[in-house]
């Protein structure tokens, strides 16, 4: 990594993890993670199951105590924010977020305005307008009056992303937003994330599918055993060697015929041909 000037750090770096150590129930999950995320950047977090991706995401929301190290948002330590302050800056889309099946999509999205409301406050026209815009940007404007129980998997994910956007976050954290979705819905969600990043939001997204990560992320951090073992542009990180080393599988990395992005396929496919 090249060392940016001090000015650049202040103006563009949104999230900084320094030597982050986390244990859950006495088991070390993160063992010295260093990571930075800039405004307008989409950073894909990849790695095998149990590498610590979800824990890293939760740590960045201030919900887990660190054994060691520090996490900064906007150049300020996480602990320095009140819950509401943090919720105005950082929004999260969990892997399997829960909500009553009878809840309407627009009501769900409106809950994203909570960080801006006082205890006895009501949602203003401004809040409604922002919730509405969040739905439009995520393509669930038509779903506003539907209840969550009637949505498809992809629609449900988009509704929760809209809820996160209603927080007007500078930093958006997503845990496998495309798991179990068909390819078309996967692309739709990543297109949305890319538009958000273009608007200046920093996006940190846990991705299982390496090819998808390679296609849509500006940078990729490869996590293994609670450490970042490689970080950089997809082409630098998603090499056959690094992927094989971390996943312990024989894989082939090819180039997408149009974009040139890395495409990761199991080597078995070729051998069996």
């Amino acid at each position: 990594m090249t060392a940016p000037t001090a000015d650049a750090v202040v103006s563009t770096t949104l999230l900084t993890l320094n030597d982050v150590h986390v244990s859950l129930d006495g088991v070390r999950i993160l063992a010295g993670v260093d990571l930075t995320l800039d405004r307008g950047e989409t950073l894909g977090l990849v790695g095998p199951n149990g590498a610590g991706k979800t824990t890293l995401l939760r740590a960045a929301t201030g919900l887990i105590e660190l054994d060691r190290g520090s996490i900064e948002v906007d150049g300020e330590p996480l602990g320095g924010f009140s819950r509401l302050d943090l919720a105005r800056r950082v929004a999260v889309v969990q892997q399997l977020p829960e909500a009553p099946a009878s809840m309407r999509v627009d009501d769900l999205v409106l809950l994203g305005r909570n960080p801006y409301l006082r205890l006895l406050g009501r949602e203003s026209h401004h809040d409604h307008a922002i919730a509405h815009e969040a739905m439009v940007r995520t393509g669930c404007g038509d779903l506003a009056t539907r209840t969550l129980g009637t949505l498809s998997g992809g629609e449900r994910r988009r509704a929760f992303i809209a809820r996160a956007l209603a927080q007007e976050p500078a930093l958006l954290l997503l845990d496998e937003p495309t798991a179990n979705l068909d390819p078309e819905a996967q692309s739709a969600i990543f297109e949305t994330l890319r538009e958000l990043a273009a608007g200046g939001v920093g996006v940190l997204v846990v991705v299982h599918d390496l090819t998808l990560a390679g296609a849509y992320c500006d940078r990729i951090a490869l996590l293994d055993g609670g450490r970042v073992v490689a970080a950089g542009e997809p082409r630098q990180v998603l090499t056959a060697e690094s992927v094989a080393r971390v996943y312990g599988a024989r894989v082939t990395v090819m180039q997408h015929p149009e974009s040139g992005a890395p495409v990761v396929v199991p080597a078995v496919l070729e051998a069996g041909r």
């Binding site: 819950r83 809840m103 994203g112 909570n114």
Partner: peptide, 22 residues
């Protein structure tokens, strides 16, 4: 006093916390 916050609590606890609820 917590009527509106109870709406937020209909999400799971982690989401509620991430939305600023103690």
């Amino acid at each position: 006093l917590f009527g509106r916050i109870l709406n937020v609590l209909q999400l799971d606890e982690e989401q509620a916390a991430q939305l600023g609820v103690d």
